[in-house]
Amino acid sequence: MRPERPLLAVDDLVVVYRGGPGWLWPIRHAPAVNGVSFEISSGETLALVGESGSGKSTIARAVEGLVRICSGAVRLHGENVTGPVRGRTPDTKRRIQLVFQNPDGSLNPRHSVLTILSRPLSIFRRLRGAHLRQAAIELLADVQLDASYLARMPAQLSGGERQRVAIARALAAEPELLLCDEILSALDVSVQASVIALLRRLQRERGLAYLFISHDLSVVRWLAHRVAVLFRGEICEQGRVEDVFQPPFHPYTEMLLAAVPRLDGGSMAPPPSATTGAGPERTRAEGCPFAGRCPRRIGPICDAEGPPFQQLRDGHAIRCHIPAGELASLQTEPAMPAAPAFAATTSSV
């Protein structure tokens, strides 16, 4: 069903941060990303969800080539581009663009909007002078800002405007894949709505693919085609958004969904003895990463064996020892997060 050669294929990715007092005696930490695999096709949005520290941003930075990859491969159109960004061809750099979480830090405070947009335009599209200026105006129009913004400094822009300029800078390279690292989290809800509408329109018009990192499940449900749920650097559930947000869930997905506050005061029935907050890393290295916090732990097998990926329909996979049918019967409550408040406005754009 999926095309033979996806736009992006990440295969068994492992990233271990080296830390410690210096370069001489690096201390090895537990892997930030451990054996993660996923694919993104053109025009598709894959959302990565998970709690803080689950390795979402690290995956985006590994795809961009900003962190050292210990093992595994990143392939773009089947071509291996695993190495650091400095070693990549200009064309590979052009195709993958990263939009940062915090628009205050991603725009140089001493550069005008024109200067900010002109660097990628001159590097990737070799534009100069009047052509460059024209292209910059078109980019601003793409993100619904007018030409008067060219002369502005970042300090003269609102948070939402800054994030649009940051998106325009990424679009200047004419990318195929946009890595969106929590790009909405610094914005208020109404601005979020307009940025989401913008992302959807760009995807419709240009077939852009997104790796959309978020912890806001209602936004993910609204924007993504497929979802991968991360826990401690490992994918525990992956599939189409409508499958992942319906039973059967992985117990961790179930906990994430139960944690979403509801406006009507009610919430999904919490799983038995749900524990939030940090728990032990895992009870044993070879066991399930979620075993220490799992409310549906079934016994010693959870500590002793890494659970298998149970393949369900349409690429939906759950990594758990509990058979999917049994999970489904335990989890009856429908838990689709409510459509965001701005959904009505978004869908009409």
Binding site: E64, G65, L66, V85, R86, R88, P90, K93, Q97, L98, F100, N102, G105, S106, L107, N108, H111, R119, P120, I123, F124, R169, A173
Partner: peptide, 13 residues
């Protein structure tokens, strides 16, 4: 450490 420096790195400046 600012993201605009990272952005410049990723476009191969």
């Amino acid at each position: 450490v600012e993201d605009y420096v990272t952005a410049a790195l990723t476009r191969g400046e």
